[in-house]
C-alpha cells in the first residue's frame, strides 16, 4: 500500500482502545501519506470516532502507537498534538456558540500569534499587528470555505450548514498538515454536499492531508484517494475506492453473510 520511499505523515500501529469490556478500537493500523485523502468508513459503532480521539489525544489508547512526522505522539495531551500539525472537527459540531464567527476562526491562529499579556495591556504595535493578522486570516479562511452568513454575529445563530463550514474554517486556520474531519457531510442537503466535495478538493489542493470519516458513500467514493474500512475496531480493508468496492470482506461486513450475491457494498453503505 505504501507509496514510494518517504515515511508516512501519520502512522497508526496496532491501536487498541477498551472501554471496560467494549473494544472500541481493536488492533487498528493504517497510515496517511503526505497530501493523502483517506476516508475511514465503517458501520455505526465501528470505532472511527474513537480512533480519531486517540490520534488527537482526547482518549489515551490502551495499546499501540501513533506517530506524526515520525515522532511518537501517543498519549500526548490534545493541544500538544494539535501544535504538531493536526487539526480536527467533531462529529457533533463543537463551535464556540456564544462567540462570534470571526472569534471562532481566530482560535485556529492562537498558536501563531506573537503577543503576550504585556503587549495586550499596553496595546503595543506588536499587539495591534498580531490582532490584525488574526482577523485577516480568519476572514481569508471564511472566504475559502465560502461562508455567506454574518461573521460578526454569534456562531450559534448561523444555519447548521454554515456552522459546519465555520468549524472547518476554524480547523484550517490551525494550518494543519493533517486535517481530520468527522462526518462533515452529516445533516447537509444535496447542494451543500456538492459544495463540501469541492471544498475537500480545494483543501487537498493546498497540500493538506485529509482523513475523513463519512457515511455518505457517494461522497467517499468520489473524493477519496484511499479508503480504510473498519468493523468492530479492526481494519478489514485498505485500498482505492475501486478495490474497496469489490472487497468481499467489506461486502460481508455491511450485508452479513447471507445475501451478498446481488448488492455491492457501496449500494448498501449509502443506505445509511
Amino acid at each position: 500500500m505504501s507509496t514510494g520511499g518517504t515515511a508516512p505523515l501519520l502512522r497508526v500501529q496496532d491501536l487498541h482502545l477498551d472501554f471496560g469490556g467494549v473494544k472500541a478500537v481493536d488492533g487498528l493500523s493504517f497510515q496517511v501519506n503526505e497530501g493523502d485523502l483517506l476516508s475511514l468508513v465503517g458501520p455505526n459503532g465501528a470505532g472511527k470516532t474513537s480512533a480519531f480521539n486517540c490520534i488527537t489525544g482526547f482518549y489515551k489508547p490502551t495499546g499501540g502507537s501513533i506517530t506524526l512526522h515520525g515522532a511518537d505522539i501517543t498519549g500526548l495531551r490534545p493541544s500538544a498534538i494539535a501544535a504538531r500539525g493536526t487539526s480536527r472537527t467533531f462529529q457533533n459540531l463543537r463551535l464556540f456558540g456564544e462567540l462570534t464567527v470571526l472569534d471562532n476562526v481566530r482560535a485556529g491562529t492562537h498558536l501563531r500569534l506573537r503577543q503576550n499579556a504585556l503587549d495586550a495591556l499596553l496595546h503595543t504595535p506588536r499587539f495591534r499587528r498580531s490582532e490584525r493578522e488574526a482577523t485577516d486570516e480568519a476572514n481569508r479562511w471564511l472566504d475559502f470555505v465560502g461562508l455567506r452568513g454574518d461573521r460578526g454575529g454569534l456562531a450559534r445563530n448561523l444555519p447548521y450548514g454554515e456552522q459546519r463550514r465555520v468549524e472547518i474554517a476554524r480547523a484550517l486556520a490551525r494550518r494543519p498538515t493533517v486535517l481530520l474531519l468527522d462526518e462533515p457531510a452529516a445533516g447537509l442537503n444535496y447542494g451543500e454536499k456538492t459544495e463540501l466535495l469541492d471544498l475537500l478538493h480545494r483543501i487537498s489542493g493546498l497540500g493538506t492531508a485529509i482523513v475523513l470519516i463519512e457515511h455518505d458513500m457517494d461522497l467517499v467514493m468520489q473524493v477519496s484517494r484511499r479508503i480504510v474500512v473498519l468493523n468492530f475496531g479492526r481494519e478489514i480493508a485498505d485500498g482505492t475506492p475501486e478495490e474497496v468496492r469489490r472487497n468481499p470482506d467489506v461486502i460481508e461486513a455491511y450485508l452479513g453473510k447471507d445475501d451478498e450475491e446481488e448488492a455491492t457494498s457501496e449500494e448498501m453503505m449509502s443506505r445509511e
Binding site: G57, S79, R94, E98, L99, G108, L111, L121, A134
Partner: peptide
C-alpha cells in the same frame, strides 16, 4: 484589554468548549 487579547479569547474558548479549545492547540 486582557479580555480582548489572544489570552482573553483563549479564556472564552475554554469557557465555551474546553475540548474544542484543546483541539485548536490551546
Amino acid at each position: 484589554r486582557l479580555g480582548r487579547s489572544r489570552l482573553g479569547r483563549a479564556w472564552r474558548f475554554i469557557r465555551e468548549d474546553e475540548d474544542a479549545a484543546e483541539a485548536m492547540g490551546i
